[in-house]
Amino acid sequence: MAQLACAQMPLRSLWRCRISPPSTEALRSYNQQQWRHESILGALSDIPSSYNKRIRVGRGPSSGYGKTSGRGHKGQKQHGKVPAGFEGGQTPVEKIHGERGFVNVHTKDFAIVPLTRIQSWIAQGRLASDRPITPRELIISRCVSDAKDGIKLLARSKSHDCSLNAQGPLTIPLNIVVSRASSSAIEAVEKAGGKVLTRYYTRWAMEQIVKNKMDPIQSLRSEPVDTEDMDTSKYQYRLPDATSRKAIEYYRDATHRGYLAYTVGEHEGPSLFHKPPRNITREEIEEKKRLRGTSGQVQKTKLNMDANKMW
């Protein structure tokens, strides 16, 4: 019987697998039979532990949720709900102590990138050192997992004792474009012959930059570059510029390597409000001191005393 079943197996299999019609007449008769396709969709189910059994309250003592249905005895808690924070009439703790502190809605939250991590990424072949390292490269290579409001470059362990992959001091010249950079990071990059440019980014802008819909570096107010291969028309959107005074002042500052530093005139400072202190020569200071000398002061007070005389 078993042998018979074995001998039939190829035929049965052929009959189930009706990709190409077999040519023999015997199989043709199998083909005339109908068979109903049964989809697996009705037999799908997640593993049993993914489902929780519904708790049926008030259905007898053996369930454990029988008599009081898990609500205990008497009072407001049994019959309805008690307001959140209500302590039975006693002055609630949040009323005694109140709120402390506040949430600063204007603060910018920057994602931090240590220079050592960039070094490590370059060593792993995840970042190319011969091209500008912009937020696009940093985000795509997951050097930054969440770019937040912008990317800030820090130097973290600049010379030695690097936790990441035991990188030595930075020796490769890098061209890094980020939102902010610390002075020590700028120093470390420039010492290796590279350069840092800080420029204005927003969350949305960085999303578009990753999608290659926006230029990662050049915006309308950027310093014009006279390279012919710069084709801005391939991007769908324009990179936004800093508009708030605080941001403009940051990027006008050459010590931050800001992208607007080129707009600062010869006798101007980065601030849009305060004038920079005028450069005073040593002779001028001497002259002032001489004029304001002790004899002069005495004379002045004498003069004033005379003027105040009533008699």
């Binding site: 792993q124 072949g125 995840r126 970042l127 190319a128 696009r136 490269e137 940093l138 795509i140 290579s141 997951r142 050097c143």
Partner: peptide, 8 residues
């Protein structure tokens, strides 16, 4: 794959 920005 390891996310990489080389050759993008």
């Amino acid at each position: 794959t390891v996310p990489s920005a080389v050759g993008i």
